[in-house]
Design a protein around this nucleic acid. Structure first.
Lengths: 357, 357
DNA sequence: GTGAAAGCGCTAACAG
DNA sequence: CTGTTAGCGCTTTCAC
């Protein structure tokens, strides 16, 4: 049986309130006599008193935990995912939460049993959403959610500006990659992604087209296109979109199209896609970067493990996770906060997967 | 203001107790009239009642969360660590926890402010310990901890059998690797690790030697030695321990010793060490596996990213994490449980980093 | 079948 | 400066 305030109070010969004040009250407005305070502290120590956090939270109607919902899509996203993308974000989120006294609750799926409490069942004070599939069902649940929410890696417009969001500047990132490739003498550059080009057909309002435009893939793809159009270098260049399907057969066939073309560089939607290109390049004896230059997106430590190490657009994932946690905490604390969307600029990490032509 | 039981009761014209019974009481011993129950459910739905989890937990003196303490050592272990080792374990822990109704609280560091509540400040019902540095200070804190604890990736003897533990069978794993290397014709096999060969000097009782013997590195190293001795193939073979230091200079020098020797294979303490060997091999134009075969330990997806893909001893990390969570939950529930140490056998994943001689 | 009472541990608000 | 009162939302106990 844990020691309670009451017991400490009894031993110190004061009321529980005084003990609370001495031990927990940060507000210095109310003063306790030094002598009394000392007696209380002594008693607490003697009894090995430890504050009951659950009771405090119950009374304060809080949990001091933020939930990281990383799988409100078709599949649960494992932390051990291909390129450590989520793991990197998580490290940031943990940092941002802990430095504010909050802990992080992992939610690989929805909590609760009924649709009503699926999103928030009272286990946390706020949610960071990662990888929420943009289907009507999820949108509905979130619109009914009373908890503060921050989107991570999803633009605010995907949810009709209902929630603040933290994203990287995809357009600028793609711009960096294109600039580098151009400077290295490439003119025929393919953009490769691994997701179907449109979102789920179940999607209703908010307008599907708006959502479609909001997906990172679309943004990067569009930026790529704009780059090719805008650049004098590429005036007469063609460009190729290769969508990789989840089926391995199609995979290979489509990547083969790339290898059989005269493209000199592949700009990949993310590092994982680049990894696939590497795999098939090895099988086809296509040398990277001699035969084909490759650029990734995200630049997690995954890139260092590849041979040759993958040149990649860098997302400050840790900083983004941290920021998301901080924003969420500030909303929970009801601090004045006009933030809508925080956009982190990307960097560019040059490794060894791009050849100079 | 969230709706409470009281309000539902008022609307349904019953007492709060009845509402609680209808909505939450799984024990069917007490029956509520069907008609009343229906009225209650109706009222709850109408008001959008949602059970206050914090209140339930407060009353039940529980949190329904287990803490994953992954950094009670010298450094905080990032989820985005080199070989996704922790991330894989985490995925297992999350699975084991959620399937039992528990959520997972990430603790990259000690909770609480004072040494007394450093380990457990009431935020969770039990702890899974990963990577606890075996120094006296930590041992003391844990011995004072009143929370159920399960060790993950640390043998029980490291804490004097005080806590149940989940580990892999390091000896058997090394045996698999050695058997494979021997079968592939290798006779001069080096064992490479990246940690200092002894534990912190601050270590007091339990006996340092016992602890030393308990470290995974020492176990694997010893297994390696036994393999070399026991095998007829290796009768006249030498073997080489290379300790890689954290300093990059020494690093390179020591790996150079390997490259300059006549060893044909390197058995690495873990995949990350193998990654370092790969790096320096590239610099020195040592071809893997033509000039040097390499075997790793853990076989996370990190191995697939290397070129050539790294043959590695497989640890069932996800299963181990899951088991740790399950054991912890069963202890929390005070179920009869005589488990002391659960040892998972290793597998062996043959990829492309070992040549036949 | 149903309800009244009591209390989990803590702290805000007020009274002395 | 200190203490009394009251209540957070829920559920167990026991009486009706």
């Amino acid at each position: 049986m844990p020691v309670t305030l009451r017991q400490v109070a009894a031993l110190a010969g004061v009321s529980p309130v005084v003990v609370s004040r001495v031990l927990h009250n940060k507000a210095l407005s109310i003063h306790v006599a030094d002598q009394t305070a000392e007696r209380v502290r002594q008693a607490a120590k003697e009894l090995g008193y430890r504050r009951n956090v659950t009771a405090v939270n119950f009374r304060a109607k809080q949990t001091m935990a933020i939930g990281m919902l990383h799988g409100m899509g078709s599949a649960i996203v494992p932390l051990e995912g291909g390129t450590k993308y989520l793991a990197s974000l998580m490290d940031g989120v943990i940092g941002g939460a802990f430095s504010n006294g909050y802990s992080v609750l992992l939610c690989p799926q929805l909590l609760g049993n009924t649709p009503v409490d699926a999103v928030s069942d009272g286990r946390c004070d706020g949610l960071i959403l990662f990888n929420v599939e943009l289907v009507q069902e999820n949108m509905d649940m979130l619109s009914r959610c009373t908890l503060p929410i921050v989107l991570l890696h999803t633009p605010a417009c995907a949810f009709g500006q209902s929630f603040p969001s933290v994203v990287c500047d995809n357009e600028q990132g793609i711009g960096l990659a294109m600039a580098h490739l151009l400077e290295m003498g490439h003119k025929r550059i393919a953009f490769i992604h691994d997701e179907p080009d449109d979102l789920r057909p179940t999607l209703n309002p908010p307008t599907p087209s708006e959502l479609l435009e909001a997906s990172p893939q679309r943004i990067r793809s569009r930026s790529y296109e704009l780059s090719t159009r805008g650049s004098a270098f590429l005036e007469n260049a063609r460009h190729l979109h290769l969508g990789l399907d989840s089926s391995d057969v199609i995979h290979i066939r489509q990547i083969d199209r790339l290898f059989d073309s005269d493209y000199t560089a592949a700009l990949c939607f993310h590092d994982g896609v680049a990894g696939l290109v590497y795999d098939h390049a090895a099988e086809r004896n296509v040398r990277i970067p001699a035969d084909l230059s490759v650029v990734g997106f995200d630049s997690t430590s995954f890139c260092d493990g590849l041979r040759p190490p993958l040149t990649s657009v860098f997302q400050p994932l840790k900083a983004m996770g941290e920021k998301a946690a901080e924003i969420l905490v500030s909303i929970i604390r009801e601090e004045p906060n006009e933030l809508n969307e925080v956009v982190f600029p990307c960097g560019f990490h040059i490794r060894q997967s791009v050849a100079r032509l």
